[in-house]
């Protein structure tokens, strides 16, 4: 094998792996990323049903209901709009009414959301960054930042 051939093979293989990696990343970015939306986004943007997304906001006071088999329903609000969320499973330790929450799942109606993951963060004072910004946008929360 000549030096030139070797170089060609090197470049070829590096290129192949590169194409593979970039392809994988692009494909994954296309399908697997999840957008973050606030209740107002959901109401105003007319998002398609069934699309995966993260919904963030405050758990509305007094909206939490519990049903059989660890099913829960609650409302997420940003002050301006409200979306009803259903979820089956164990809520995180820090899930509270009036506190920030992020729900991941899909839209099942104009203002209805079915979550398969609920995130509440591990610090009482902590407001998930996205939630804080959404709420600030709606003028609900005046955090100490």
């Amino acid at each position: 094998m000549t030096r030139k051939q070797r170089r060609l093979i090197t470049i070829g293989s590096v290129g192949a792996v590169l194409v593979l990696a970039v392809g994988l990343i692009l494909a994954a970015l296309n399908d697997q990323i999840v957008f973050f939306q606030g209740p107002t986004d959901i109401v105003e943007k007319d998002l398609p049903l069934g699309q995966r997304m993260r919904l963030g906001g405050l758990v509305e006071e007094g909206s939490l209901e519990r049903f059989e088999d660890s099913r829960v329903a609650f409302k997420v609000t940003d002050g301006a709009n409200t979306v009803a969320v259903t979820y089956q499973g164990i809520l995180p330790d820090l899930f509270r009414e009036g506190q920030g929450v992020i729900a991941e799942g899909e839209l099942i109606g104009a203002r209805a959301f079915n979550a398969d993951t609920i995130l509440a963060k591990h610090d009482e004072n902590y407001m998930p960054k996205e939630v804080a910004e959404t709420l600030k946008k709606q003028g609900v929360w005046k955090g100490n930042e």
Binding site: A28, L29, I33, V34, F35, R54
Partner: peptide, 28 residues
């Protein structure tokens, strides 16, 4: 870093979770 960059660039918030990494990291 993509979510951070996207957030800084046009304010779109996304989360890149396990599915992304399973699809890219796994095959590699």
């Amino acid at each position: 870093l993509y979510p951070l960059a996207l957030d800084a660039f046009d304010g779109t918030k996304i989360s890149v979770g396990a599915p992304f990494f399973n699809l890219t990291f796994g095959p590699l």
